[in-house]
């Protein structure tokens, strides 16, 4: 019972992270039609920023989170301007470019952090929140959970309550029709990748104290993001959030009882099953013929 409750709490916290980077991937794919393979590496850059500035140089955690968000957003914007925009007619070319970026960022991380073992960031918030005798959550996790929830809340507000958010969703639904209506596609693309990058940077920064940091950590991130995206429905942001939470719970439970590799295998199989039964995902809509 304790284990189950503890797993639910952990799953929810994981779900927050998953949602942050999966939503970014969905947004970029929806608006630009590019599968951003380097998305996991954007998260990795966020985590490395925290390691370098906070753990190594003692700059306080909160400003470092902001720096990480800004840094990753800038990387995203550069990718849009110099790679995805020139290749926007060929989605495959965009994907390949993002793989190129993936390599470059991994090497950059190796250069900055050295090759050695994975890095750890000591949690900036010590202590544990004791809900019940048997249910304890470290403050670091509580903090992460509320910040990711706040990040997603802000995104939701932006997308549904602001004009720019409406334009973004319109482009994601139908690029050509939106262009005809006078929406500036390039500008919207920059905003999409900017928002996606910011969320990835935030996810990386928040995950940093809770995970092993190494140049290859992006691999698991992108697999998770793919699973969440497909299960939630390509192009559906709310689907991605719901799927992130469901998948995080699913993954946490299977990890507890059978181990991490089995959990990932099950996740991948779940994704293939969803692709077969309902290729549009749990919340997806068929876009066009």
């Amino acid at each position: 019972m304790e284990l189950i409750l503890q797993s639910i709490i952990n799953g929810l916290i994981q779900g927050g992270f998953f949602a942050l980077f999966a939503v970014g991937l969905v947004l970029i794919f929806g608006v630009m039609g590019v599968v951003n393979f380097a998305h996991g590496e954007l998260v990795m850059v966020g985590a490395y920023t925290v390691w370098l500035l906070h753990a190594q140089n003692g700059i306080p955690f909160i400003p470092v989170i902001l720096i990480a968000i800004i840094l990753v957003t800038v990387i995203g914007l550069l990718m849009e301007r110099f790679l995805f925009r020139p290749t926007c007619n060929d989605p495959l070319a965009g994907l390949i470019c993002s793989i190129g970026i993936l390599f470059i960022l991994q090497v950059l991380a190796t250069v900055v952090g050295g090759d050695g073992p994975s890095k750890q960031v000591p949690p900036p918030y010590q202590g544990t929140l004791i809900l019940f005798d048997f249910l304890r959550v470290p403050y670091q996790r509580v903090f992460s959970f509320f910040v990711s929830a706040a990040g997603l809340g802000t995104l939701w507000y932006f997308l549904t309550r602001t004009k720019l958010g409406w334009a973004l969703r319109a482009v994601a639904l139908d690029r050509e029709a939106s262009a005809l209506q006078g929406i500036n596609i390039n500008r919207i693309s920059m905003i999409a990748i900017g928002v996606g990058g910011a969320l990835a940077g935030l996810a990386g920064a928040l995950m940093a104290p809770l995970t092993n940091i190494n140049p290859h950590m992006g691999h698991n991130v992108i697999i998770t993001a793919f699973i969440v995206t497909i299960v939630g429905g390509v192009g559906s942001l709310s689907g991605a959030v719901i799927a992130a939470v469901i998948y995080a719970l699913f993954h946490t439970f299977i990890t507890v009882y059978f181990g991490g590799v089995i959990a990932t295998i099950c996740g991948l199989l779940l994704m293939v099953v969803v692709l077969i039964i309902k290729p549009t995902g749990i919340m997806g809509v068929r876009v066009s013929e």
């Binding site: 599968v35 793919f226 390509v234 590799v261 089995i262 295998i265 199989l269 293939v272 692709l275």
Partner: peptide, 27 residues
């Protein structure tokens, strides 16, 4: 299963199926 999908879905589906096989070797 795979050829019920095309393009993006096929790309991701084939990736998932491959990773599942590879992780089985690991496990």
């Amino acid at each position: 299963p795979l050829f019920r999908m095309t393009q993006f879905y096929f790309l991701i589906g084939s990736f998932a199926a491959g990773e599942a096989i590879r992780l089985t070797w690991m496990q």
